[in-house]
């Protein structure tokens, strides 16, 4: 505005024109979509699940008749539920321990300089970018009871078929990965590791590159060799970021039903059933919504714990 323009112009403009410049107005406005999203897609279903779990609602009869904790009692009384509960914890814990070890090794390798590093990084990341359902289908075909390419390789190596050095079970023409309970469980575990390893690796890689070069140089000059630097410097400095990777892995694995649903459908004889898949089979396919909701709610305490730990980690990184 030039000096000659009368100041009256400013006065005549309505104050409402600057409404969006006020933090008290703009802030809530920007937050609104998130609030709507969380309430509609997280809050409402959660409340519904709690209501369902306390009632006898089924697909056929949708009236909510209060039955107390009967659904929970019935769930616990069921052997398949107990198997699913055990599987959920075992799959999550074992796969995350394996991921932690493998991701540390992979991240160390990928942080080094070598030819073709970008290609290898890309390949390592692939499983994470693949939709879970597609990846699981790939595994389903790879482990097919008749046409499995793994079986083909094992046969060629002489590990599968009559006279196999691995024992009697391996003397058939096929390993039947998805037909033996223990092999099916191992399969589910492997798919979970395969799926969560890339993200953990990328997170740890970021953590590794965040360690200042000066600190590594200082450790070098101070006389620490590779393994001492690893144990005394790198791993301790990576711990917070490892926790982040593990918490993500826990959430993905603990709540996942796609892998089990596609690869084993919980079988054979419910040996790979997890809480999420069992809730689905009981609640949706079995039509007993109240039962399904009660089973699914068993995931809740662990997820609340994980969420709390994530928030604590986030707060700690904020204060440092």
């Amino acid at each position: 505005m030039t000096a000659g323009t009368p100041a009256v112009d400013l006065v005549e403009q309505r104050p409402s024109r600057y409404l969006l410049d006020r933090a008290g107005v703009l802030g809530p406005l920007l937050l609104l979509p998130t609030v709507v999203y969380i309430v509609a897609l997280v809050g409402v279903p959660l409340v519904l699940a709690i209501l369902y779990s306390l009632s006898d609602v089924t697909v056929g009869d949708q009236s909510l008749d209060f039955v107390g904790l009967r659904n929970f009692g019935d769930a616990i009384g069921n052997a398949t539920f107990r198997q699913a509960l055990r599987n959920t914890f075992v799959f999550t814990l074992v796969s995350q321990v394996a991921v932690l070890v493998l991701a540390n090794i992979l991240a160390l390798v990928l942080s080094a300089d070598f030819k073709g590093k970008r290609l290898v990084r890309f390949l390592v990341l692939l499983p994470w970018t693949t939709p879970i359902a597609l990846g699981a289908l790939g595994w389903l075909w790879t482990l097919d009871n008749v046409y499995s390419p793994i079986d083909f390789v094992l046969r060629r190596l002489g590990l599968l078929g009559i006279g196999s050095p691995l024992g009697q079970r391996w003397e058939g023409t096929n390993a039947l990965w998805l037909a033996w309970p223990d092999l099916a469980q191992l399969t589910v575990l492997t798919v979970h590791v395969w799926r969560t390893l890339p993200l953990a690796t990328v997170i740890l890689l970021a953590g590794l590159t965040a360690i200042p070069q000066d600190v590594k140089d200082a450790a070098n000059v101070d006389g620490a060799g590779f393994f001492r630097q690893l144990v005394w410097i790198r791993i301790p400095l990576l711990l917070p970021i490892m926790a982040v990777a593990v918490l993500y892995g826990i959430v993905f694995t603990f709540t996942d039903m796609t892998v089990v649903f596609i690869v084993t459908r919980g079988g054979p004889v419910d040996s790979t059933q997890v809480l999420a898949s069992w809730a689905y089979f009981r609640g949706i396919e079995g039509g007993s919504l109240g039962q399904g909701a009660a089973i699914a709610l068993f995931l809740f305490p662990v997820l609340v714990g994980v969420a709390a730990m994530m928030l604590r980690l986030a707060r700690r990184t904020e204060t440092v």
Partner: peptide, 14 residues
Amino acid sequence: QIAMVFQSYALYPH
């Protein structure tokens, strides 16, 4: 048998 002091001091933060 050398020792070095860096611009950032490079102390081990943990």
